[in-house]
Amino acid sequence: MFIPYIRKTLPGLALTLLLATAALLLATLPALQKLGLSALTLAIVGGIALGNSVYPMLAPRCDSGVQLAKQRLLRLGIVLFGLRLTLQDIAAVGPAGVLIDVVMLSSTFLLACWIGPRWFGLERDSAMLIGAGSAICGAAAVLATEPVARGGAEKVAVAVATVVVFGTLGMFLYPGLYALAQAAGLHGLDSRHFGLFAGSTLHEVAQVVAAGRAVSEQAAEVAVIAKMMRVMMLAPFLLLLSAFQARRERGDTAGTTRRLTIPWFAVGFVVLAGVNSLGWLPPAWRAGLLQLDTLLLAAAMGALGLHTQVSAIRRAGLAPLGLAACLCGWLIVGGALVNAGVGVLLK
């Protein structure tokens, strides 16, 4: 029974891992690094390219393995993602950084859930996916939220596309805003404050690194720590969202009961963050597991791309981009206000 399963899934699994490996190699190119394009983004782009060309011919042999990558490898990748964080990261950003991250994450996601259906006519699951990607950590958050929101491959691809578009825009815009603030005489906005602002509002980790380094190395360091704090909030966010979904579905189906679905991969994420905090893993093991984590997440993104049809994204229309644009505006303007307000409050 086990050997037939391997034979059934191996071709598709090999295809997604090949896509992931190619994305990892491309992500090391200086030109793509300057653009802030991570291996995850490159993997889904490559998957979409193949999915809309040769993959339909390969699907009968490969689809089982691709489904495995999109589901099981994704969850394992999210668990291993916890090794990027430590409890010491929280102490490094201080109470102000933690409070800013909590306010920006919750406000951005709730804003998405409110204006997505009302202003743009989006289904709630689409709004949730776009909100999670904008509020937490980009494509990885969209992928992690999908099993709870149950949005489907096409909606996930649309949400990831919005993260890429507006995260890339913000990556180039933020250093310019910093230069304008300095020219206007706002010298209270130093590298550390800019790092907190970028880390608490930009979408992807790679984009945070690029924007921070465009200002200074100190700004990049603070920005990455603030960003990783947002990433660490992914697990409690998923647990709360799962509880909310279960309660909402109980209300929609009166007279029936539905057990709370606990996203166990989120629990594993927290456990490994704790393990990393204690320093139990040898550095070489941790480095190897982090490389494996990136490979697994890239494979999941490639699998998602293979199942994404450009026509489906086109059918989604301008509404997802409109929601993502509003969220981007809130992250910039609201994020600046929240950063300034918390700074005054905790001074």
Rank of each mutant, 00 (worst) to 15 (best):
M1P: 10
F2G: 15
P4W: 00
T9V: 14
L13C: 05
A22D: 08
A31E: 12
G36K: 03
T41H: 06
G46L: 15
G47T: 07
G51D: 14
G51I: 05
M57S: 14
Q71S: 13
R72W: 05
R72V: 15
L76C: 14
G77M: 07
I78T: 02
A91N: 04
V98D: 01
V98E: 07
L99S: 10
L99Y: 09
L105A: 00
S107M: 03
L111G: 05
P117Q: 07
G121W: 00
E123P: 11
S126W: 00
C137M: 08
A141S: 14
L143C: 07
A144S: 08
R150P: 13
A153I: 14
E154H: 13
T162R: 08
V164I: 10
V165W: 01
T168G: 09
L169Q: 09
F194A: 15
A210S: 08
A220F: 03
K227S: 10
K227R: 09
M228C: 10
M229E: 08
R230S: 05
M232I: 09
M232A: 14
L238W: 02
S242G: 15
T257P: 10
T257G: 15
T257K: 12
R258A: 01
V267P: 08
A273F: 06
A273S: 04
N276F: 07
L278G: 13
P283M: 05
L292V: 14
L296F: 07
L296I: 04
A299E: 03
G302F: 08
G302W: 01
L304V: 10
H307F: 10
T308M: 12
V310T: 06
V310H: 01
S311V: 08
A312T: 11
G317D: 00
G322P: 03
L323V: 04
L327M: 07
G329Y: 02
W330M: 00
V333E: 08
V333G: 09
L337T: 03
N339T: 15
L346M: 14
